[in-house]
Amino acid sequence: MGASRRVTLNDVAAASGVSRATVSFVLNDDPRQSISAATRDRVKQAARDLGYVPHGVARALREGASRVVVLNIDSGMEGAYSRSYIRGLDAELALYDHVLLVRHGRHTPKSTQQVLDAIAPRAVIRFGENYLTGRALEDIGGGWRDGLAAHAALQLGHLTGHGHTHVAVALPDTESPLAATRLRLTADAAKNLGVPEPASFVAPREPAACAEAVAAFLAAAPEVTGIAGFNDDVALRVLSALRDLGRAVPDDIAVIGFDDNGYGAYCVPSLTTVNVDGETHGRLSARLALGHDAGDLRPPRARVVVRQSV
């Protein structure tokens, strides 16, 4: 059979020696039909051997929605956490015979509606929606336990635990939907820790511009002895800038990253960072999107990866 031709119900029927209707009843697991176990096994084996895939549109018309779940990820939210989240989401959906479609970038109402019209997805998930809509503490388990609020507090707490009570947050030079939320949650964490609210500055991507920005900020805020990067990319820019400025890390200034992209282990000094495993969060999102109970899934706590920069 040519690889380019789609395997049909007729092909499965011919291979298993039953009618097309019987194949349909078996593959759709129709409870109203009395079909012997042997016949069911024969049909399912033929479908597996031939690589039969149900026609998505026909299934969508039958079930009212396709077995596709769409994940929208806004620009500026990609990273190590999102990759682990996607792995968990995809794996859990597969257990329930659903597939994942990931859309990166800017999503307009029109483009989203085009997707809805084309595939009638079972669900549409917006990555980080709780934080983007201001419901920061409504994530699974509460934001202060295993959500972004807890992760921001962990980052700040590691600096303050090493005596850095005056801290700044280094932000990316590109728009991030989560920047304002992170600053707010970090300010809340500072209040809980009894330390001054961290100031913030932008760390440009271009090395010379970043060094200039870091120098200007530290000149205006000489009391700052610790810098928390919005993510590892930003923290690595700050490390490079401090080196160019002749500032010793961590003796003069401590730096901690966020999201553990892996590259921090290869710089000098190596970058201390916060690692957040999002796989269980992804699996929980899949179960909730499909209307299943969360069961015994519990996200692991975020952890500080201790290296040399703090």
Rank of each mutant, 00 (worst) to 15 (best):
D139F: 00
V12N: 02
L95D: 11
L193E: 10
G226H: 08
D188K: 06
L284V: 15
L137C: 06
A65Q: 14
G295D: 10
D277Q: 09
L27R: 00
H158A: 11
R298K: 11
R122E: 12
V18I: 13
R106I: 13
T8F: 00
D97S: 14
L159E: 00
L89M: 11
G163L: 11
D259F: 10
L290N: 09
P109E: 09
P196S: 11
Q33M: 15
P299V: 01
L288N: 09
V238S: 10
G282I: 12
D30E: 10
G134N: 12
E138I: 06
F127C: 06
A289S: 14
T39H: 00
A65K: 14
Q33L: 03
Q113R: 15
S66Y: 08
F25N: 14
F258V: 06
K191W: 00
P269H: 09
Q113I: 03
T22K: 02
A80E: 04
A286E: 13
T280W: 05
G56R: 15
N130F: 13
V276D: 04
L50V: 06
R301Q: 14
D41L: 12
P31I: 10
H104F: 15
A47L: 03
A286V: 07
D259S: 04
D11P: 08
L239G: 04
M1C: 06
A203H: 01
V12W: 03
P207N: 08
P121R: 02
P172A: 07
A65G: 04
Q155Y: 00
V306E: 13
A189K: 09
P177R: 02
D74L: 15
L284E: 08
V23C: 06
L290P: 09
M77S: 12
P109T: 04
R40S: 13
S240E: 10
G147D: 11
D139R: 05
S82E: 14
A235N: 07
A220S: 15
K44D: 05
G229F: 08
G194F: 11
R103L: 15
L193Q: 12
V214E: 03
L218K: 04
H107N: 10
A123E: 06
R301C: 07
V115F: 05
G128I: 03
S75C: 02
E212W: 00
A180K: 01
P222K: 09
E212S: 14
V305G: 01
L132M: 10
L159Q: 05
N231Y: 05
G64Y: 08
S176N: 14
V70P: 05
A190M: 09
G143C: 08
G128C: 08
D296H: 09
A179H: 04
G17L: 12
R42I: 01
A15F: 05
H151A: 14
L171R: 04
G264E: 01
A199N: 07
V224S: 06
G246K: 08
L95G: 13
D74Y: 05
D30W: 05
L95E: 14
P172R: 03
P172H: 09
E63W: 02
E92Y: 03
D29I: 01
L89F: 15
H55S: 13
